[in-house]
């Protein structure tokens, strides 16, 4: 492309651009290498995993996948993925609904202490997760919710992810106020204005929230480790760890196979939605 353009304009190849592209590609290769290694290793026979430095396996060993699909501790991979899905989808639903509602209140409704409350909410972004971990655990323990999915999903329905509330507030502030006023004159109260006008128009912000919530929840390990201990309730990330624990060294191959399996849904999810993500970033100003 660059060369073609160069010859048309008669300026010769644009070395700066070529250099930039080569540089970007090099960085990309460095970043992708671990992933490629992971994928390649999942096909290596057991003895090659640690000993060989080569990227490509000497022969394709599909047995790794067969072992991985059997799952861990008698719980099948499907079940593990299912558990991860339940938690992730629950978290996505919770965050999208609760964060947008909270954001609407902060962006549009007038109530006493709105300013201080907004600042307080923003302050919670800076609160380290680990600081609230123990009190939260005690609360869930007393509610009898430990070793269920509730501690991982319920908080999302209470708009606790201040970052997404903030993101959505910023987005909603960009929606012209006249639309709310027109809706008010058309006969909408605050709730109808939210569901009929603001929510559909906030789609880009909602999709961003959904994508990141899904990825972060799917990849989460720490909270799941703390709240889930029965193997039937394990998520795919927890299973990966127990794979290392319960098996001998020779199970490294299957572990990498399992890693690939764990990555697949999230890669698919990302590919399905990244179009909207870009769209969301591009269209943060509502026009027309």
């Amino acid at each position: 492309m660059v060369a073609v353009r160069g010859s048309i304009t008669g300026r010769g190849p644009d070395w700066g651009r070529i250099g930039l592209h080569v540089g970007c590609l090099a960085v990309l290769l460095v970043m992708l290498y671990p992933l490629a290694w992971l994928a390649a290793t999942s096909f290596k026979p057991a003895d090659e995993v640690i000993s060989s430095l080569r990227l490509l396996p000497s022969r394709i060993e599909l047995g790794n996948y067969a072992t991985a699909l059997e799952g861990v501790g008698g719980v099948s991979v499907l079940r593990l993925i299912g558990n991860s899905l339940i938690i992730s989808v629950g978290a996505v639903l919770g965050n999208v609904l609760s964060c947008s509602l909270a954001a609407y209140a902060f962006a549009r409704l007038r109530f006493t202490l709105r300013g201080p409350l907004f600042a307080l909410m923003l302050a919670t972004i800076m609160l380290p997760q680990h600081a609230v971990l123990i009190p939260q655990y005690i609360v869930f323990n007393q509610l009898g919710m430990v070793n269920t999915f509730w501690p991982l999903v319920l908080p999302k329905f209470l708009a606790t992810d201040a970052f997404f509330v903030f993101l959505t507030v910023q987005f909603m502030r960009g929606i012209p106020k006249e639309l709310d006023e027109a809706a008010t004159l058309d006969g909408c109260g605050p709730f109808r204005t939210f569901f009929r006008i603001i929510l559909p128009l906030s789609r880009p912000a909602l999709i961003t929230t959904a994508i990141f919530t899904f990825i972060w929840t799917w990849n989460d390990f720490f909270l799941q480790l703390i709240y889930l201990f029965e193997p039937e309730k394990f998520t795919i990330t927890l299973a990966l760890r127990s794979f290392v624990d319960t098996s001998s060294q020779s199970a490294y191959g299957p572990m990498f196979a399992m890693s690939v399996i764990a990555l697949l849904p999230i890669v698919l999810f990302f590919m399905a939605f990244q179009r909207f993500l870009v769209q969301g970033m591009a269209s943060s100003g509502v026009k027309g």
Partner: peptide, 24 residues
Amino acid sequence: MVFQSYALYPHMTVAENMGFALKL
């Protein structure tokens, strides 16, 4: 009211825009 910026609902068709108040 007719607003200076028209304040048409961008996610609705012309017909939906016009019929919105009646639908409500």
